[in-house]
Design a binder for these strands. Structure first.
Lengths: 335, 335
DNA sequence: CTGTTAGCGCGTTCAC
DNA sequence: GTGAACGCGCTAACAG
């Protein structure tokens, strides 16, 4: 298997050019005789042909690859996004190169550098920092660059993000409406990220609509997105209230997880009357008896937009960079 | 940014060789003068250097990449495995190319073909079929090939798998011991896969130890691994028993999810006394009040073994292919 | 210490 | 219809 064009040419006795025309299906255009074509096709059917992408890429200065940098694939949202993007890439015979940054600027930079060295044709990044790697800025880089999930204003590239403001707004509205006495807290991790900021603004707007006067006391933030952050936030919230909250929403599933664990640990159980809200949906939420409001991001639509931007020729750096905003879906359970 | 070696040589006035020695840090070995080195380093500090991997790969017939084919990254187990493997690869400056087969033989074949064309140095595959793509068998393929997660006997490559027999055995033992009346059912999806077969054997052994006479009636199987399979299996089980089971275990989290949903739908709620067992652990299981036995596979150890085999030179095909078996961990909740 | 050269496999252009 | 030649950027071997 896996002959090169030259090997096939030698074996069949035809020239490299002829073999190439057959392989590339340009047999009509160059009037290759039917039996020549047949002979070469037969040989390939038996011995196979495997293109050498390194050589092709070197010649064409194009790799047919797309780079994809995500914070964490254990996050179901990013995993689904990757799946959707990979499907698109497959259709166009592009190879998707997925790397994880684990929310570490250093790993993110390594990933980007590595992908640029590999000369990807497009590069989609969910940044975990506001700083932009100089090589990305450079107009020498051929790749179309797109940010997603987090629209840092400092990033001079087009971005594709969920409508986090709308998500926060609608979730908070529903929570405030359902919650006895209109009590609702927001436990926020990774609070410096632009998408979380938008969610907070949505929450604040909903609170204002409902006439909540002390919005600031309703919002509890932590830098890291993790179950530990959720535990911590829930612990200090309970300490402050001297009782469990009647309703709370979380900025991510990880925070929710930690918050619920803390609640159960400290209170002995989770009150089925507790009203829960969370960003990102997860099938396992079905297993809780509580009323739950979940905001689900539309991964397929996001992947679609990303892909379009990735295929488009690279924008000249320096322009503001348009932002595509994709609506979220609100999912309610047990209401 | 991103100059080539030749551009740097031309710009600094030194030869390509000299520039390369500086870049590769072989400046001492070849006694490059300090000021030459400094001049070149200064130039690179300003203008940058980005290696062209396509050219390098073409020359060296080596790409510094590892291919990784998994059924589904939405499965937390594979996502964790990918993370562990990626970490190893990063250490050695290898790029991990991850593709998903979605349990489709066709997509799996596309993925493998694509990675072989890309000339990966190593290729780890969790096969979803017993058939082996001819190109893989061919000794022309340079890559070290390793199977994992599913040890199909027909695959002539080394394999790394969890000790599914032990996992099934220990989980079943614990379940039978805890369950009132020793009742325990096993809901199995993707039942034709070798790893599931091993889990079933473990279950059967534990049943035999406990003197269960009608083991066959305890095992319920489905071809696909999905929540729908879980729902279906639970529905026919309840139909058969004319009551919910006292204890059951599932071959995957997806099956568990479906089974619990079905249970709640049909019974109105999930009895907190229900004893649950499942393969693969998930943090969200913490949220259930039930006693739960979960088998957690050791992703880090598996990634380690995979990586070793991947780095080893390719085995001549035809040999049986050794199998590395990695023990699982049993996690008990609420006991 | 530094420079020159050949060739990896492919796509393209031009000549027969 | 077919063949030959060049060059993409890099590495390695050898020649100073």
């Amino acid at each position: 298997m896996s002959k090169t064009v030259e090997e096939i040419a030698k074996a069949t006795g035809f020239s490299i050019t002829t073999v190439r025309f057959v392989i590339n299906g340009q047999t009509d255009r160059y009037r290759i005789s039917a039996k020549t074509r047949q002979a070469i096709e037969d040989y390939i059917a038996i011995h196979g042909y495997s293109i050498n992408h390194a050589a092709r890429s070197l010649k064409l200065a194009r790799t047919e690859t797309i780079g994809f940098v995500v914070p964490d694939l254990a996050n179901a949202y990013f995993a689904r996004l990757m799946a959707a993007l990979e499907a698109r890439c497959n259709e166009r015979n592009l190879l998707l190169l997925t790397l994880a940054s684990h929310e570490s600027p250093e790993l993110e930079n390594r990933a980007i550098t590595s992908l640029l060295e590999r000369d990807v044709d497009g590069l989609a990044i969910a940044p975990c920092q506001s700083v932009v790697l100089p090589q990305l800025r450079s107009n020498k880089t051929r790749a179309s660059i797109v940010a997603f999930d987090r629209g840092y204003p400092s990033w001079p590239f087009p971005a594709v993000v969920s409508d986090n403001y709308q998500g926060g707004l609608e979730m908070a509205r529903r929570m405030l409406q359902e919650s006895a006495g209109g009590e609702c807290f927001f436990l926020c991790a990774h609070a410096d990220s632009p998408s979380i900021q938008d969610r907070i603004r949505g929450f604040e707007t909903a609170c204002a609509e409902s006439g909540v006067d002390d919005v600031a006391s309703r919002i509890w933030t932590d830098a890291n997105d993790s179950p530990d952050a959720g535990r911590h936030l829930m612990r200090i919230l309970i300490d402050e209230l001297r009782r469990p909250p009647a309703a709370f929403m979380c900025s991510s599933l990880l925070v929710l997880e930690g918050a619920l664990l803390q609640l159960r640990e400290q209170m002995g159980n989770i009150d089925p009357a507790l009203l829960i809200g969370t960003f990102d949906d997860h099938a396992m939420l079905d297993l809780l008896p509580n009323r739950i409001v979940a905001v689900r991001q539309n991964e397929k639509a996001i992947a679609e937009r990303l892909f379009e931007r990735l295929l488009a020729p690279r924008d000249p750096v320096g322009l503001p960079g348009e932002t595509d905003t994709v609506p979220c879906e609100i999912i309610c359970r047990n209401f």
